[in-house]
Amino acid sequence: MEVREKLAYIIISLLASVAIISVILIFIFIARESLPIFFNPEIKKEANLRVFFFTRDWQPISLIPKYSFIPLIVGTVKVTIVAIVIAFPLSLGAALFTSEFIPGKFREIIKPVIELFSAIPSVVLGFFALMNIATWVQVLFHASSRLNAVTAGFALAFAVIPITYTICEDALNTVPRELREASIALGATKWQTAVKVVLPAASGGVFAGIMLGLARAMGETMIVLMVSGNAAQITLSFLDSVRTIPATIAAEMGEVAFGSAHYATLFFLGLLLFSITFVINYIASTLLERTQKRLRGER
C-alpha cells in the first residue's frame, strides 16, 4: 500500500513537471540554434545585432544576404495595430453586453457562441480572408494590392476576438453583485454602473485581455502568411504588403540550409517572439490573478 502511494505520487509529480520542462526546453532549443549569431565568427559577420536592428533590408536569399529585422518588425506592428483596433472595441462591447445588459440565460448561450470563434482554425480564417476580406478591403480603400496590412490585420482580429472577449467577460463577471447593487441603489443607471463601477473594478482583467490578444496577433502565423502579401518593406501606409516575423519563419525555414546564418537568424526571430510573448503573458497573468483576488476578496 505504502509503496503504491509513493509510486503514484512520484509518477504524478513527474508528469506534472512536463509543462515546466517543456517551457524550459523550448527556450533552450530555440536559443541553442540561434547562438551562432553571437559565437560563430563566420555567421557573426553576416548576421549580428547591428545588422538586425540598424540596417534596412531583409533579403536573406540575395547574393549578399541582408538580415534587417526592421521591415519585419514594422510589418508585425502594423498588422497587430489593425487587429487590436478592430478586435478590442468589438470584444469589450460584446463583453459588456453579455455580462451587464442581458439576463443570465442569454449569457449562457451568447458566450459559448462567440467563443466558438476560437474553434475556427487559423488556416480557415486565412482562406476566408483571402477569398472575401481581401476583396472588401480593396473595394473599400482602393488598395493597390489585395494582400496588405489591413487585410491581414482584419483577419487577425478574428483570432484575437475570442481571447480578448472571454477574458474581458470573465473579468466583468467576477465583479461582485453587491457592487452593482450598491451603485444601482444610489440611483445610477445600468450604463453608469457598468462604466463607472464594474469596468473600473475589472480594469485589470480587461487590460490583461488586450495584452493576451496582442500576443496572439503578434504570434499568429498562418493568417498573415496567407494574406499579408509577405513583402518585407518599410513604409508608413497600412495598405502596403507587409511581412511579419512569424510568417517569415514559416515561409523561409523550410528552404534554409541547416546551420547557416539564415537558419540561426530565423531561430533568433523565434527566440525574440518567444521572449516577447513570455513577458506579455507573465504580466497579463499576474494582472489577472491580482484582479481576481481583489474582486473575490471584496466579497
Partner: peptide, 20 residues
C-alpha cells in the same frame, strides 16, 4: 508554465518541435 504554453505562438512550437 501552463499559462505560458497557452500563449506561445504556434510557429515557435514548430521551431521547437524541429529542434527537439
Amino acid at each position: 508554465a501552463i499559462n505560458n504554453l497557452a500563449s506561445v505562438p504556434s510557429i515557435v512550437f514548430g521551431l521547437f518541435g524541429m529542434g527537439f
